[in-house]
């Protein structure tokens, strides 16, 4: 096993544990916004897409990469907008507390 893989696994499992801990006590009301939010951050694959589209690659790879950038951007931008729109609605309903 390479050292890179070991480091990667450390990072992966610590982040996984953090994700579990942070979410485990969320009230029911916030389930749907949270669903939209986790969708938005899963658009982090945009980072990988940028490297795929921009690399000094053949035409097919560049086109596929560009489609990936397009799709990931839709995911990120749309996801964050939707989350915020939902949360704004809650504020109006609940009033100021």
């Amino acid at each position: 096993m390479s050292l890179t893989l070991i480091f990667g696994l450390y990072v992966f499992f610590l982040a996984a544990f953090t994700g579990y801990q942070v979410i485990s006590k969320v009230p029911h009301l916030l389930h749907t916004p949270l669903m939209a939010f986790t969708n938005a951050i899963s658009g982090i694959s945009l980072v990988g897409s940028l490297l795929a589209a921009g690399g000094h690659y053949g035409t097919l790879s560049t086109v596929l990469g560009a489609v990936a950038v397009l799709a990931a951007t839709i995911n990120v931008v749309g996801g964050f907008l939707i989350t915020d729109r939902m949360l704004r609605m809650f504020k109006k309903k609940g009033g100021t507390r």
Partner: peptide
């Protein structure tokens, strides 16, 4: 695959919080 930690961290966060949710 890319050796990129922000992808690993964000992906794991999302993977596990999504599952718990």
């Amino acid at each position: 695959a890319l050796g990129n930690n922000v992808l690993i961290i964000c992906g794991a966060l999302d993977g596990f919080s999504g599952f718990i949710l």
